[in-house]
Design a protein around this nucleic acid. Structure first.
Lengths: 464, 464
DNA sequence: CAATTTGTATCTACACATTTT
DNA sequence: GAAAATGTGTAGATACAAATT
C-alpha cells in the first residue's frame, strides 16, 4: 500500500480546455503558474501525470511535457522520474532572509548577525586607514580585483583557514552573497544544475531562482553530504556543480570531517563538478586552533572558495575574498567586472588594515570566545540537542512535532523571539523532521539570549 | 544584383556528417560553437539556410532549427527573418572595457575616467564621515537599500537631475554596473529581449551575454532612437524592455531632445516595455543649468532610473542610486538583496556627506568646466566633428575609411594613445561607418590631452 | 505584387530511463 | 524480477511571418 498515494485522488490540476486559446502549451503554462502563485496548488502537491493530463485535454502528451518544462524553468515545479511532477516548495513565496524590521522589540534568534555589537577595532582601523593619507590612491579607478597589497592580505588570511592560493588567483568581492552571485553567473548557465544539501543556505535558494539555476538536493548524514548519493545523483541528472559549506553548513551546523571531505572530493573530481565552497566560519576554528584542509586545497583547482569577512569582522563592510582555480580565472574576473566593475577599495582597505595589524585575528578569537559562551548557555537550556556539536553561531533544534512554518515562527514571535523554521532552508519541501535554526550571536547580550532561549524552551515543552 | 550575395558562395559551415555522433542537434551545436570560437567562422559570416543544411546533412530541418536556437541562446549567432542567420559580432572575444594595465605609458583617450585626479573634496568628506562618530551605526547590518538619510540625499540629488521620486522608491547600489545587473536580473529572464541603440555601452553587451538577455538594435538618427523603428521592432520581435541613455548616449554622445523623449515614451507605453534609463552625465547639464525632464518622469512608474555617482564624483567609491516605479519595488529590492545583501554603508555615507555639504554640486560644476575646456581643446583639433555637440566626457570621431578595430587601436597604441574603436560598442557587427570613441577626461592633464589629440589628428590625416 | 527564400512557432511521434508495484 | 507508471531526450511535420527578388 502506498504511503502517500494520490492515484485515487481527483486530479489536483484540472484546466478547463474550453477556456484555453491556442497556443495550448503557453496557455496551460500560464494557467498553472497563476494557480500556483494564487496558492490554489500548494507546494508539494502532485500534478497529474503528463499522459493522463494529455488524455484528458486531448492533446499530444509531449505538449504537456512542454508545459511542465516551461514551469520547471521558472522554478515553479520539479519532476522526478518514476515518481511524478510536484509543485516546488518555494514557488509562491520569497524565503530571502533579510534585515528585519527594527521597530519590533524582538529577541533576535533568527538572523545570524555575528555579534555585530563588537565593532570598536573596526572603527579604529577605519580611522587608521583614513589618516594614512593614501586615500587618493584608493579612490582611483584601478585594480578591479583588489589592490596588490589587499590581495596579499587576503591570501595570508585564507592561508590561516586552510586555503592555499596566491594573489593571481584571488579576488575581492562586495560580500559573500555578491561573490556567490558572480561565481554562479560566471561558471554556470541558466538551466544548469547544482548539487546541494537538502537543507541549505536560504539565500542560495532564492539566488538559484533568480539566476534560473536548479538546486538538486543530495541526501546526507551527520557528517554532511553522502558521497554515494552524490555520485548517484550525478549519473542520473547531469549535474554541473556542487555547493558546500564544509566548515559549518548553514543551517544544520554540520561540519564535514576530513575523511568525508576526501571522499566527496573524489566523487567531485570523477564527475568533473565545479565546487563552490562557501566558508562562513572556519575563522572560528582557526581562532580555536584547529583547521582541517579546505575542499579547495583537496581539489586542487577545480573549485572556487568564498570567504565572507562580514560575518567574522563587520556586517557593514561588504567584503569577501574568493580563491579560484586557474581554469576559472578568466571567467571569474569577467564576472566580477560585469556585475561590480570593482569592489569598494575603502572597505577592502579597512579589512586589510585589520588583517595586517593583527586585529582581525584578535576579533576572531574574541568572537570565538563569545560563541563558546553562547553555546554553553544554549547547552544549559537544551542539553539534549547535539551537545557535542561544533562551537558556532547557530544551532539546529528539532521540533517535537511537524508544524507549519508560519505557525511556529508566528507563535514564537508573539512570545517575543524571532526564529527561523527549517522550511525556509528546505530545497525540496517537507522533510521527515522539522527544525528551528537558533542564532546565538544576535541577541545583543547574554541576558537577552538567556531570556530568548527560556521562552523557546517553554514553547517547545508545550508540544510534548 | 545583390550587394552582398552569398548565394553562389560555398556553404560557410559544412559539418562532416560522418564524424557526428548522435544526438545530432547537440553535436552540430558543439561543432558550430567550436568553429566560431576558433575564429574559423568570422563575426558577420552568413550561415547556411536551415533547409539547405538539413538537406545536405539529410536531417529534418527543424533539427537544424534546434542547433541554431541553441547557439543563439549562447549569444554566438543571431537570425533575421527573410535574411538568414549570422555569426554574432562579439561571439568569440570579450569587449569588456576594464581598467587598463598601468605599466604601459599611454595617453588615455579610451577609458572614461571622469577627471578622477580631482579627488580632494572626496578625501575631505571621508575624514568628515569618519570623525562624526556614528561609524558604529553605519557598520550595523541594517537598511539593505540604504539608511533613510542616505536615501533622502539620493532623492534630493536626483531631483536636480529631473527625476522625481521618494525614499520608498529609491535604492543604493554598488555602482551603476551593479545596479544595472540587479535591474536586468530582477525584471527580466534569460531569453528576454531588450531594445538598444545600434551602438551602445559595451559593458551592457557583455552583461547581456552573461545574463543570456538578447540585445536587439533599433535604428536611430542624430536625436537618438527612432520611435517608428522601435514600434516596428516591438511588433515583430516580442521585446520585453528597452535600455536608453537619454542624457548622453555612450558611445555616440547623442543627447535625446525633449520632443524625441516624449515620442519614445509613447511607444514604450504602448508596447508595455520596461525602460532602463542609465544616466551617467545629466549632472553635468544640471551644473551648467539646464536639465530636460527624465524619461523616468515622462513614463511615470514604468521605468527604472540609474544614476551612477562614481563617474561624477569618485571612481573608487562604488555608489549608484536607483529610482524605480512602484510596480518594480518588490522585484528590485529582492534583486538587490540577492546579489549584494546590501551596499557598503561607508561609501554611501561619504557620497551622502558630499551631497549634503554642497561639495557634490561644486564638484559637478568644476568637472563640467573641465569638460568644457577639454571640449574646446578638442574643437581646435577636430573642428569638423560635431562642433555643436553636447559638452561631455567623450567624443565620437568618424574614421575616414573602414578599418579593422585591432589594427586602428593597435597602430594608435604604438603611437602612444589608447582609443576605442566603434566595433567594441556595436551590437550587431559592422555598420556603414566606423568611429573612434575619444575620452577627454582621462589624460590626466591638458598637456597630455593636447598631445594625445595631436597624435590622433596626424594618424587620421594619413588616411586621406 | 506575387513568388521565393528564410527564420519562427507549435504540435506530434517515438525511444529511453527510473521508480514503484 | 517483470510489468506498469512516469518523466526525459531526440527528431519530425506543418503552419506562419517577414524580407527579398
Amino acid at each position: 500500500m502506498p504511503v502517500n498515494s494520490f492515484d485515487s485522488y481527483p486530479m489536483t490540476w484540472k484546466p478547463d480546455k474550453a477556456s484555453l486559446t491556442p497556443p495550448y502549451y503557453k496557455a496551460l503554462a500560464e494557467d498553472l503558474e497563476a494557480k500556483i502563485k494564487a496558492g490554489r496548488l500548494a507546494p508539494g502537491a502532485k500534478l497529474p501525470p503528463q499522459r493522463e493530463l494529455a488524455d484528458y485535454l486531448d492533446l499530444n502528451y509531449t505538449t504537456i511535457t512542454r508545459v511542465y518544462e516551461l514551469c520547471k524553468q521558472k522554478g515553479l515545479i520539479y519532476g522526478t522520474m518514476g515518481k511524478g511532477t510536484f509543485v516546488a516548495p518555494h514557488s509562491a513565496e520569497d524565503v530571502t532572509i533579510t534585515a528585519p524590521n527594527l521597530a519590533a522589540p524582538l529577541i533576535e534568534l533568527g538572523m545570524v548577525n555575528g555579534f555585530s555589537e563588537y565593532s570598536k577595532p573596526v572603527e579604529r582601523a577605519t580611522h587608521a586607514v583614513v589618516e594614512k593619507g593614501y586615500l587618493r590612491r584608493l579612490y582611483e579607478y584601478s585594480y578591479p580585483a583588489g589592490h596588490p597589497h589587499q590581495l596579499a592580505a587576503a591570501v595570508r588570511w585564507m592561508e590561516q583557514l586552510g586555503v592555499h592560493t596566491d594573489r593571481e588567483h584571488t579576488a575581492i568581492f562586495s560580500g559573500a552573497q555578491n561573490a556567490l552571485t558572480a561565481a554562479l553567473l560566471s561558471l554556470f548557465s541558466p538551466g544548469d544544475k547544482i548539487a546541494v544539501d537538502p537543507y541549505t543556505y536560504s539565500n542560495l535558494i532564492e539566488l538559484g531562482k533568480l539566476l534560473h539555476i536548479f538546486l538538486i538536493p543530495v541526501a546526507g548524514d551527520g557528517a554532511g553530504m553522502l558521497p554515494e548519493e552524490l555520485d548517484k545523483t550525478c549519473t542520473q541528472n547531469h549535474i554541473n556543480g556542487i555547493y558546500l559549506m564544509p566548515a559549518c553548513t548553514n543551517p544544520t551546523a554540520i561540519t564535514i570531517p576530513l575523511s568525508r571531505r576526501m571522499e566527496l572530493a573524489k566523487v567531485i573530481q570523477q564527475n568533473r563538478l565545479i565546487l563552490i565552497e562557501d566558508d562562513i566560519s572556519s575563522w572560528m576554528d582557526a581562532a580555536a586552533g584547529t583547521v582541517p584542509p579546505s575542499m579547495f586545497d583537496l581539489l586542487g583547482g577545480q573549485s572556487v572558495y568564498i570567504c565572507g569577512m562580514s560575518k567574522s569582522l563587520c556586517p557593514g563592510l561588504r567584503i569577501a575574498y574568493m580563491a579560484f582555480g586557474a581554469a576559472f580565472k578568466k571567467a571569474i574576473l569577467h564576472g566580477l567586472f560585469n556585475i561590480n566593475i570593482k569592489t569598494s577599495s575603502l572597505d577592502a582597505e579597512i579589512i586589510t588594515e585589520l588583517i595586517l595589524n593583527g586585529d582581525a585575528y584578535k576579533i576572531a578569537v574574541h568572537k570565538q570566545q563569545l560563541a563558546e559562551k553562547s553555546c554553553a548557555v544554549f547547552a544549559r537550556y537544551f542539553p539534549e540537542v547535539r551537545a557535542a556539536a561544533h562551537t558556532g553561531y547557530f544551532k539546529w533544534v528539532p521540533l517535537p512535532t511537524q508544524s507549519p512554518a508560519d505557525q511556529v515562527e508566528g507563535e514564537l514571535m508573539q512570545n517575543g523571539v524571532r526564529t527561523y523554521h527549517s522550511m525556509r532552508f528546505s530545497v525540496r519541501g517537507k522533510q521527515e523532521q522539522d527544525f528551528l535554526r537558533i542564532a546565538l550571536c544576535s541577541a545583543g547580550n547574554n541576558r537577552n539570549l538567556e531570556k530568548g532561549l527560556s521562552i523557546l524552551q517553554s514553547y517547545l515543552q508545550r508540544f510534548s
